[in-house]
Design a protein around this nucleic acid. Structure first.
Lengths: 185, 185
DNA sequence: CATTTGTTTCAGACTATTCTGAAGCAACGA
DNA sequence: TCGTTGCTTCAGAATAGTCTGAAACAAATG
């Protein structure tokens, strides 16, 4: 019978994997991450294969992605040719890695697309009938709103992340202050 | 030849759909959302089917999900039995809808799981050898760190969202202030 | 109550993603 | 140089996720 510690880890790994799915990360990659997060020691490929029951190829590919995201680092042991892997264990650093990458990969492109979309319509704006102009205006206003929103989020993340590891927790404290005084209005 | 307005909308819809994929939302559902966001008027099922070239069934299911998320509302026209659908157009409200739902569906469960994981190990803690105890301690510390992190995020969202629609933009402005003075140190 | 109009559901088809396993590559030591 | 160890790659298999279309349903109308 597996120890309580092992069963506890297994549960955490399973749940973390599930969650990955909801956020556009493959279940296995998330499980791999969880496994490393729960492990006190760096792990080698074979450890991972055995614990998660996945193939060598899958392990190699998933590890590479985690390293690309900056969530996992390669490590080596003296007199051992195998590569070992260790997870970033500071949760705020972890969050920063993810936020930075998603910003770059997903938010930036849509901001750029919105800019282009706006441009396309602006050029045509003069040659439209009155009703079409109205429709176009609504559309442009919506694009602008979305653009501002995304820029605000980008700025918020940039500023929060720049502020070092505990930026967000500081922020939360700050918000509490902001939210409480107004009750005395 | 399609008008620039149409081509612009199509581009936005395509990109928004792609992005949905990265965030664990089906491409079609995201496209549907984008279509409604770009449309000045509420749309009926047939409009959507035609514009996105998808089946009636798919349209019905995707709309239902969007309504569940609170991102889209049913509307009706006098003397017309068809249902029309309109998108939430305030981006901050939109964000709130998504944040609230994800919090409930995805963050809460993992917080609960972490609590359980901790419990499982605590019970066993006394019956362990010294080395195992060390390992278990590391694991528990990691669980605690993750737990605090998630709670901070939850709190942050709650506070931000409670503060009305433009809470975040206010926040961004505030952070700018916080970050700029220190340059004068 | 039969008909028309519009919506929902869901089994099966289809598509996309993920995974495996074996071949290939690279680094090292004998 | 050749064998050994360990990592990476990728074609094809397996799996998971999405979509269709037709049947069932529901509501309004004649």
């Amino acid at each position: 019978m597996a120890s309580a510690l092992e069963r506890s880890k297994a549960l955490f790994i399973r749940r973390w994997g599930e969650m990955g799915g909801y956020w556009g990360i493959s279940r296995t990659m998330a499980e791999l991450h969880a496994l490393m997060y729960t492990s006190a020691e760096p792990l080698c490929t074979d450890d991972i294969m055995e614990q998660l029951q996945i193939s060598r190829g899958n392990t190699s590919m998933s590890l590479r992605q985690l390293v690309d995201w900056g969530l996992v680092a390669r490590a080596h042991r003296r007199g051992d040719r195998k590569a070992y892997f260790a997870c970033e264990t500071d949760v705020w650093e972890m969050f920063q890695c993810i936020a930075t990458e998603r910003k770059r990969r997903e938010v930036q492109p849509i901001v750029e697309t919105i800019r282009r979309c706006r441009e396309m319509v602006e050029q045509e704006l003069e040659n439209l009938g009155p009703e079409e102009t109205e429709t176009a205006q609504v559309y442009l206003r919506r694009l602008d709103a979305m653009q501002s929103f995304l820029n605000a989020i980008l700025e918020l993340l940039t500023l929060t992340l720049r502020g070092g590891g505990d930026g967000l927790s500081m922020l939360a404290a700050l918000l509490t202050q902001l939210n409480e005084p107004p009750t005395a209005k």
